[in-house]
Amino acid sequence: MNALELNGICKTYPGFTLENISFSLPMGTITGLVGRNGAGKTTTLKSIVGTVHPDGGSVRILGQELGTNVMQDVGIVYDECCFSEILTAKNMNSVLGSVYHNWSPDLFLGQCERYGLPLNKKIKTFSRGMKQKLSIAAALAHSPKLLLLDEPTGGLDPVARGEILDDLWEFIEDGQHAVLLSTHITTDLDRIADRILILSDGQLKLDESKDVLLDEYCVLRGSPDQLDLLDRDEILGFRRNAYSFEALCKNRAAMAEKYPALVCDRTDIEQVLVLLEGSEQK
């Protein structure tokens, strides 16, 4: 069973359209959702949880239509802390325990202690990074099967980020849980993601296994006059300046053989995103 299925999700605002977004998350996987600001990541996440009502398409979570019952099995972390800032972590333990059927006070308070969060200080005194840790502790404390995370490691130092990423890996390793992680920190996805989704201007431009992306995609480099050597149908995205060009292609081994005069390098998630968003397309 897939943890999440989107089929043809559309949403139109003045000046922006989320267009026919379809993808699925298998259990036991972490999927990274990336794109520049305004690409549609947050609208996609809000469509999943029902805080935005799509104009078309469908969402299924754990095999069910969106509803209150299924949301008991979903943990959510937004890019901004959504808890009342007059509360303390201890207050939250009581409040959220009345909301979630599977809430575990021991798990929540244990995660707070592990993350170094004070239990008796008001949330308004917390830094952004501390608020993100608190949100993650709360998302994990009711034993969800699906985590939806919007910039969860924003504001965290490298050590704290590593702790969070380790927790996400442990969360899915039994094969019965899944994570959708929206982030600008592509190095986090290099480390833990199984699949990469890239949104651009409201369209899903790429849905690919991370291993395939890193092993089979490539960047061809050369001088501007060499650009005409390329078959434009093989170019997924590119950019150039007065002295050189970079072109994103698939099938690295075949490209290296076909274009021996060009430099053919492996790529990474950030570079794929940049080239797909290049100011010049084929």
Rank of each mutant, 00 (worst) to 15 (best):
E173A: 09
Y217P: 01
F238D: 03
I192Q: 01
G63F: 11
G56T: 08
E85I: 10
E277T: 11
L107N: 12
L236E: 07
L107T: 14
L180S: 09
L197S: 10
Y217T: 00
T31C: 14
L180E: 00
E216I: 04
D73Y: 12
I136R: 07
H101Q: 14
P152D: 05
I21F: 10
C264A: 04
I123L: 13
T125M: 09
F245V: 09
G116E: 04
K11C: 00
Q203W: 04
D201R: 14
L4F: 09
D166C: 10
S98G: 09
G28A: 04
L140I: 11
E277L: 08
L148V: 13
V74D: 00
T12F: 01
E208I: 14
D166P: 04
S58D: 02
L204I: 12
G28M: 12
A160M: 15
G40E: 10
E170F: 09
M92L: 15
S104G: 07
E257V: 02
S279A: 13
C82D: 12
S135K: 08
E277C: 05
K122I: 07
L189N: 04
N102T: 13
T125N: 10
L119I: 11
K41S: 04
E280N: 08
K90N: 13
D201I: 03
L96A: 10
D228Q: 15
D194Q: 11
C10W: 11
A193P: 03
K41E: 05
I123Y: 09
N20I: 05
G38V: 05
T187K: 11
G110T: 09
D228P: 00
S135I: 05
D188S: 07
I30H: 01
G278C: 01
L220N: 00
M71I: 03
M27E: 08
R161L: 09
C82Q: 14
L230S: 03
N251F: 06
T31L: 09
P144W: 10
L204H: 06
V263G: 08
L181C: 01
P260Y: 09
E173S: 14
A39Q: 04
T44G: 02
E80L: 07
Y243S: 13
E65W: 10
G222Q: 06
I269K: 05
L134S: 02
G35K: 05
I48C: 03
P54A: 15
N102H: 15
K46H: 11
D194R: 12
G162L: 06
G28E: 02
S200F: 10
K46W: 02
C10G: 07
D174P: 02
E85L: 08
D215F: 04
L147G: 00
G129P: 06
S22C: 03
R239C: 07
K131S: 07
D166S: 15
L276P: 03
